[in-house]
Design a binder for these strands. Structure first.
Lengths: 224, 224
DNA sequence: CACACTTTGTGAAAGCCTTCACAAGCGCGT
DNA sequence: ACGCGCTTGTGAAGGCTTTCACAAAGTGTG
């Protein structure tokens, strides 16, 4: 039943990665007044196949009613509980360069349940300046943030050269979940989760497809 | 040999997604003066297994030398060629809200080969203002950008409510590759590639792991 | 020149994930 | 109360991806 790719509670990693999408679709439906939804319609809204949605949800439990569908509010509650969104998650952003400042100012972090409680930087020049309503703190403040504020999620927005060092500091302070915007592979001890977001990578993948398509179109013209 | 998950040239999608990582690792090694690299060492730098790296590279061709390894500069050239990075890719950002402005200002887009050539917004109030050295243009300019500047990649940074509409406009103008920052599932005709970047989703996945870990630690204390 | 050492390229095997197909179960109308 | 229609939950099958293990091939040395 459980395998190497399963998370501690037996939910496959790929399923966990899709749950936020279902949650967003459900919230939209609930706001529109829909009290019940079928796997077919929720799957369409989420951009997945109905059987995949049902298989994913089956890992959480049996919260649907055969012949009817899923109660919107119930499913929202269950997925929220599974993801751990019933509590608040304090977030700290490390690295106040171009990207870090953009992230600090970006309202997108103010999603329900997440709150940026601290901004940090290794440069003494930057420490003490005020960004997006918060005073930038030195890296040395990390342990106190973890113990006093329950900091559990760190966002790395430093240049690649400083990323590993900042990552190590976060891990040493007790942070176990890291979102890495720096274009580097981070080495972390087991038990620490790193997710990576990289614009350059995304653009290059898109370039591949544009390139391939241009090639195909060219070949077609030549061949026809 | 080729399958549903293969791209036009028979390279699996998962492989394409990893090529940018190899490219970055190789560039770092080349800058450090390394002229040759083994699959074991390149794999370690890229954060993958040696056999996966070799299988991925084998889809591009046989560019290694048995008993020696890969010539750094040669492999950089081959991967760049496969990804289509030998030419320049003009990029347009649609939606000049908080996120769009941050992306326009963010130097991270100025990766080799990608250049933001236009900023667009549907709001007449915003059109004409100057952001990061570019004048914001109306959506109606899209077709001209595609034909005159060869625009091929569009970045959507609008609120979710406007995302589909902007996506349709991009597709109608001839853009075939879209990077979507809006938390919405975009419907596109076949042949158009969409990749999604969503901070809220990433944070929720991290929350799941923190949550699971806190749970496990709690259970352990209770059990012991 | 032959041999030993190293590392690639690749079939085959194993493991995941997705899709399929259908029994089980629920509500509703009669 | 009973049957009909609809939708979920889930084994089984199929398809991808990753890992394994080794033959093929190149380098360097005596």
């Amino acid at each position: 039943m459980s395998s190497l790719h399963d998370t501690p509670r037996g939910i496959p990693e790929v399923t966990v990665a899709r749950l936020p999408g279902y949650l967003r679709a459900l919230t939209t439906l609930a706001d529109a007044g829909q009290e019940s939804v079928s796997s077919e319609s929720l799957a369409a809204t989420s951009g997945v196949s109905p059987s995949m949605l049902r298989k994913d949800l089956s890992h959480l439990g049996s919260y649907g009613v055969r012949g009817v569908g899923y109660e919107t509010s119930r499913l929202i509650a269950e997925i929220s509980a599974a993801l751990g969104l019933t509590r608040d998650w304090p977030v700290a952003i490390v690295g106040m360069g171009n990207l870090g400042r953009a992230l600090a100012a970006y309202q997108g972090f103010a999603v329900r349940g997440f709150q940026v409680i601290a901004l940090l930087d290794g440069d003494a020049e930057v420490v003490g300046t005020r960004i997006a309503g918060l005073d930038v703190q030195p890296m040395a403040d990390l342990p106190a943030l973890v113990t006093r504020s329950g900091l559990a999620i760190g966002v790395i927005a430093t240049p690649p050269s400083a990323a590993q060092q900042c990552c190590d500091a976060l891990v040493a302070a007790g942070v176990r979940s890291i979102l890495n915007f720096a274009p580097t592979v981070l080495a972390v001890p087991p038990g620490v989760i790193v997710r990576k977001v990289d614009l350059a990578t995304e653009l290059q993948i898109l370039a591949f497809h544009s390139h391939a398509q241009a090639h195909a179109a060219h070949a077609e013209v030549k061949g026809a």
